[in-house]
Simulated scan of single mutants.
Amino acid sequence: MILVTGATGTVGREVLRQIPSDVRVRAMSREPDRLAAVLGTAEAVRGDYDDPRSVAKALTGVESVFLVTSRVGRDDDGRFLRAARAAGVRHVVKVSAAAVADSRADDLITRWQRVNEDLLRASGMEWTLLRPRSFMSNTLSWAASIRADGVVRALYGGSANSCIDPRDIAEVGVRALTEQGHTGRVYPLTGPEALSAAEQTAHLSDLLGRPLYFEDLEPAQARTLLGARHPEPLVEALMRSAERQREGAKTRVEKTVQEVCGRPARSYWEWARDHLTAFVPA
């Protein structure tokens, strides 16, 4: 039995979609009613990191776990891993972050992920670490302004990021869960090229067949927009991450998807083509 946490999330739902139909799968969510659209043949179960009983129940009979946590600064990983070991889980595939490998990265989010990786390595269970660069799907945050006035606004629009299609992260994760030879491995994951926000805007413009315009945000503007959604410590971490990108820290392209999946990583153009309806005005 495989347990997929974060099953309604960007990567978790893709893991559920890609796992072979003959593999027993359980999908965990704090709100299992939301799982209907992504379940397939999986079993739905409620699991809340703040509710140890629900997590213990979700882990019953589970051999392998796809682990996603997102509440920065919380001990969700530690509590889950202790419960998983107690339940007899053998292997955990965890989504971490590419920044963990960058010695210059010392923001709150990266420090938290480093601690979580150390917890997994010390857990006594077999492990596989996925370290993706930024998700291509993050550009869905531009959809409203593109639909409304054909404008994309972002910080440091000329800085490049070797972002990755979440479907590729999921496929590497599924292979790690269902094939031999992936335990004890760290997989850095990127797309096939490093692109700036301005270049991504140009791709979207070509696909939509309409002009789109890019506007650079000033740091103060970006900080204000982030502050409307996140607490100050997280805003500071995101701003520091953007500064590292401006300095060129996120341009490295890895061949991991090719090596693990036997095909090249999907391009941003492919991702945008497959999600184009999100950017089309009603």
Rank of each mutant, 00 (worst) to 15 (best):
L195D: 06
E199V: 07
P188R: 11
L177A: 11
V172I: 15
A170L: 11
G181K: 12
L177V: 07
L204Q: 02
L204R: 00
L189P: 03
S205W: 00
A176F: 05
G181L: 06
E179A: 14
L195K: 01
G157T: 07
Y156G: 12
L195W: 13
P192V: 06
G191N: 00
H203P: 00
E171I: 02
G184M: 13
E193I: 04
T183N: 01
L204N: 03
G184P: 07
Q200K: 14
R185V: 14
L204Y: 07
H203E: 15
Y187R: 11
L204P: 04
T190C: 07
T183K: 04
E179T: 14
A176M: 03
P166D: 11
P188W: 05
A160T: 12
S205M: 00
D165Q: 09
S162L: 06
G157I: 05
I164E: 09
V186I: 15
D165W: 04
G184K: 13
V174Q: 03
R175L: 15
T183L: 01
L204G: 01
A194Q: 11
L207Q: 15
D206G: 12
A160D: 02
G181R: 05
L207A: 14
Y156N: 15
S159N: 11
P192H: 03
P188K: 10
A198S: 14
P192A: 10
L177W: 09
A176S: 13
E193D: 14
T178W: 00
S196R: 09
R167H: 03
Q180N: 05
T190E: 07
G184V: 10
A170C: 10
S162R: 03
L207G: 06
L204H: 00
Q200L: 02
S196C: 08
L189M: 13
P192Y: 07
L177R: 11
Q180P: 00
D168I: 09
Q200T: 07
T183G: 02
E199I: 08
G157R: 14
P166H: 00
S205E: 09
A198L: 12
P188E: 05
V174F: 04
L177F: 11
L189G: 04
H203I: 15
D168W: 05
P192K: 04
Q180G: 10
R185D: 01
A160W: 03
S159W: 01
G158C: 03
A197R: 14
D165G: 07
A198Q: 13
A194D: 11
E193Y: 04
L189I: 08
D165I: 00
I169S: 02
E171G: 00
H182N: 08
S159A: 15
N161L: 12
S196Q: 12
T201P: 10
D168P: 07
V186L: 13
C163G: 13
A198E: 14
T190F: 06
Y156F: 13
A194F: 12
S205R: 02
L204M: 00
R175G: 08
V172N: 05
V186D: 15
G157V: 06
A198Y: 09
P166K: 02
E193L: 10
D168V: 08
T178P: 00
L207R: 01
Q180L: 08
S159C: 11
P188G: 10
E179K: 11
L207W: 03
V174G: 10
A194H: 13
E179I: 09
C163N: 11
A176R: 05
E179P: 04
P188H: 08
L189N: 06
N161E: 15
H182R: 12
S162I: 04
E179S: 12
A170E: 06
R175E: 08
L195I: 02
G181C: 09
